[in-house]
Structure formats: structure tokens, C-alpha cells
Amino acid sequence: MKKAVIIPARYSSSRLPGKPLKDILGKPMIIRVCEAVDPKSADIIAVATDDVRIANVVEEHGYKAIMTRDDHICGTDRLHEAANKLKLNAEDIIINLQGDEPLMPNENLKQVSDLLEQNSDMAVSTLYEDISLTDGLDNPNAVKLVQALNDQVLYFSRANIPFDRDNSRTPSEMLKRHVGVYAYRKSALDAFVTYPESSLEALEKLEQLRFLENGHKIIAQKARVTIPIGVDTEEDLHNVIQLFKEQAL
């Protein structure tokens, strides 16, 4: 069984065009993301991109780039194409690290990978963080999840779940906010791309619901290390650069 970290990276971005190539203290962001992965924790580290400019930068810095189609509807489709080009087998584990997460702790990548490896009946693993009711309750950008007692995910939603019918929550109670770090069995990706967009996926705009609606099991665990901010906007980029400067001191 192999473990592969695949980093999807698109040049186009409505809020920050050319995002993967933005400079962070002398290196393009996509290279900072590659460097966040401990080579000892994965058999393969590869960037999946539809843009030759990104591919060239990745290869110039000694990392592997995989050219993928530019018409994928969702990131999971791009991940699957890259996994096929890497000739990964059904039992191999694929860790998805977004190309705008240069501060991702490697411990979290190892955690999500180990979680899937240790739970053979699960197709996908992911992580969550506790957030306050104030930050998450009515925020559709904070995707919530609920779990069974064995940590299997029952549902993901942008809505207020679990709903507090009798207003019995206390202010100190926390919600589980899903963070977009995944590990997949290659067999799960093979199945995912054969399914049409599911009804819940279309409503919530959450790809992971396609797995649940088609009977695949997802397990989640609280992230052992706090996940720093990613880069969606110019302001995020400025803040990430400041954090890198602080780390360098």
C-alpha cells in the first residue's frame, strides 16, 4: 500500500488570480505547500494542475507535477485523474492537501492518513475543529458535521446542526467545524467519479455528501494540531506572510 499526497492547484481564482504562484518570502506559495509535507510520511508528493506555469515552477523546484484536464467540475475529479496518472492501486491512500494551505502542519496530514489506514471499513477520513456557537451557528461558510459514537460521520451541513430544539445548549458548548483535509482510498475515488452529482451535494454545495448518499463511510477525528489560515484573498496572503516571518525569527 502506498501513501500519496496530491496537491490540487489551479491558476484561476476569482478572488486571487494566480494564487499558487504568489510569493511567500522568496518562494511561490505552491512550493511552500509542498515543503509543508514531510517526505518521510508519504511515498509520493505531487501537484495536480491544469496550468503549465504552475507545473513548470513545481518541477523547477524538484517536485513532481501532474498535468490534469481544465474542465473538471470539482476538485475530487482532478484528484482522481492525478491518482490514475500516478498508477495508484485500489488499496492505496491518497491525502488531499489544498494548494492554498502553506501552513498546514504535517502532523494533521499524518493523522488523517493513519485514521483511514486504521479503519479498514471506511472509504474516506477527514478532520474537524471545535468552534464556538457564535462563530459557527449561523455561518454557512463554517461547515458543521455530526458523528456516530464510533466517529463515523452522519452528515455535513452549512446549516445549524445538530439543531437545538429546546434551546438547551450552554454558551460554552462547541460545534464541530469540518476542515478540508481528506484521505481517500483509491477505490473510493474510482467509485466517486462514476456517480452523478447527488441531490444533497447540489443543495449544500458539498462534494463529500456524494460519498454519503451513495453509501460510503466517512470517519472524522478532531485535529491534533490547530490548522492555521489558508489563502483565499490578498488579505489572507498578507497574514500568511506575516506568520512565515514570525516562524523565521
Rank of each mutant, 00 (worst) to 15 (best):
R10H: 12
Y11N: 05
S14I: 09
R15D: 15
K19H: 06
P20A: 04
P20Q: 06
I24T: 08
P28A: 13
P28C: 13
A36N: 06
V37F: 04
V37D: 01
D38F: 08
D43Q: 01
A46D: 00
V47F: 04
D51H: 04
R53Q: 03
N56V: 11
N56T: 14
V57H: 01
V57A: 08
V58H: 03
H61C: 03
G62S: 02
Y63Q: 07
A65T: 01
A65K: 00
I66N: 00
M67V: 07
R69S: 14
D70N: 09
G75S: 14
A83I: 00
L86F: 00
K87P: 04
N89M: 13
A90M: 10
E91I: 00
I93W: 06
I94N: 03
I95F: 06
I95V: 15
L97G: 00
Q98H: 14
D100G: 02
E101I: 05
P102D: 07
P102V: 03
N106H: 04
S113Q: 13
L115T: 14
L116P: 00
Q118A: 15
N119G: 02
S120G: 09
D121E: 08
M122E: 07
A123F: 10
L127Y: 03
E129T: 08
I131S: 04
S132T: 15
L133W: 01
L133E: 00
L137Y: 11
D138T: 13
N139V: 01
N141A: 07
A142S: 13
K144I: 00
V146P: 00
V146Q: 06
V146I: 15
L149E: 14
L149T: 13
N150L: 06
Y155D: 13
R158I: 02
R158Q: 07
N160E: 13
I161N: 04
P162Y: 07
F163D: 12
S168P: 05
R169Y: 12
E173Y: 05
M174L: 15
R177W: 03
V179R: 12
V179Q: 08
G180A: 15
Y182Q: 05
A183P: 05
A183T: 10
R185Y: 15
K186P: 04
S187D: 11
D190A: 09
E197Q: 15
S199Q: 11
S199Y: 05
L206Q: 13
F211N: 04
L212I: 14
E213I: 01
N214V: 00
H216Q: 12
K222T: 00
K222Y: 02
A223D: 08
R224G: 15
V225W: 08
V225D: 07
T226I: 14
I227C: 04
I229K: 10
G230C: 13
D232E: 14
T233E: 04
T233M: 06
E234L: 10
E235Q: 06
D236Y: 07
N239H: 07
N239L: 11
F244Q: 10
K245I: 13
E246K: 12
